[in-house]
């Protein structure tokens, strides 16, 4: 059979097709990323029990009224940019040395040996509860969570590399109290300032301990979960926990 020439494919309309696809993607997608502050809502429980009182020194209250005026730890504040400095002060005031006279939360220093003892106790208790017939599921879960917490602390102190692990009082928290008419802009600003303060604290500590920024560790962890970054993040979270309470406004 005679050899025939294969006719060339006309690719002139290829550009048109590609343009069409390009324009479709330009229209249906968006460049800007959604950024937000993620917060947890406490679980709804029905109980008549009065919660134990909290010492005022453990509360970092940020209040805003309907006129969008701010009050942080009982002091009137003109410029909302200063909130983060107050939060940093709240965390760091007693970090090196406890001072009973000031009104900032106390720190406890816990040694590795103490953690090991507490962990053993927690495991014992958890086993005891599990072996009890008709034990409540919530109690078992609670005990198991305690064991996990002590295990976390044990890895944290090994990571920290010092004799003792400084820990802020377990009740210390940031409390946002706004009114119904407070502008959302100010509420978001408060959230932003809290996030900024906690990032600053964790970042400084991260630079000191690991010699790299907190952001670096976080982004590497999001790419690869197998490295030792989980422990690093956990340690920084134990040093500077972000306990935030948003109080539902009544008026």
């Amino acid at each position: 059979m005679a050899k025939r020439d294969i006719p060339e494919v006309n690719a002139g309309s290829m550009a048109d097709i590609a343009f069409l696809l390009l324009i479709f993607f330009l229209v249906t997608t968006t460049m800007d990323k959604d950024k937000a502050y993620v917060r947890n809502i406490p679980k709804l429980i029905s109980t008549q029990d009065v919660p134990p009182p909290i010492e005022p020194r453990n509360i970092c209250a940020i209040k805003a009224n309907a006129q969008n005026q701010l009050m942080v730890r009982g002091e009137y504040m003109q410029n909302p940019d200063e909130i983060s400095e107050k939060i940093v002060e709240f965390y760091q005031k007693n970090e090196i040395k406890n001072d009973g006279l000031n009104s900032f939360p106390m720190y406890s220093k816990i040694s590795k040996k103490d953690i090991e003892i507490s962990l053993d106790q927690a495991i014992e208790q958890a086993e005891a509860v599990e072996n009890t017939p008709d034990a409540l599921a919530t109690i078992i879960e609670f005990k198991q969570r305690q064991v996990a917490e002590w295990e976390k602390k044990l890895t944290a102190i090994e990571m920290y590399g010092k004799e003792t692990l400084p820990e802020i009082h377990f009740q210390a928290h940031i409390r946002i109290e706004v009114m119904k008419a407070t502008k959302y802009e100010l509420f978001a600003k408060i959230q932003s300032e809290i996030e900024e303060a906690i990032y600053e604290l964790r970042n400084d500590s991260s630079m000191k301990i690991f010699g790299e920024s907190y952001k670096n560790i976080l982004s590497r962890y999001s790419m690869d979960e197998k490295l030792k970054d989980k422990e690093k993040i956990d340690l920084l979270k134990i040093l500077y926990p972000d306990r935030i309470i948003e109080v539902t406004p009544k008026v």
């Binding site: 959604d34 937000a36 502050y37 917060r39 809502i41 709804l44 978001a188």
Partner: peptide, 15 residues
């Protein structure tokens, strides 16, 4: 959201 146990909320901002 609390009533239906959807316990995670996020406040969107412009980064």
């Amino acid at each position: 959201l609390q009533k239906i146990d959807a316990l995670s909320i996020a406040y969107a901002v412009d980064g």
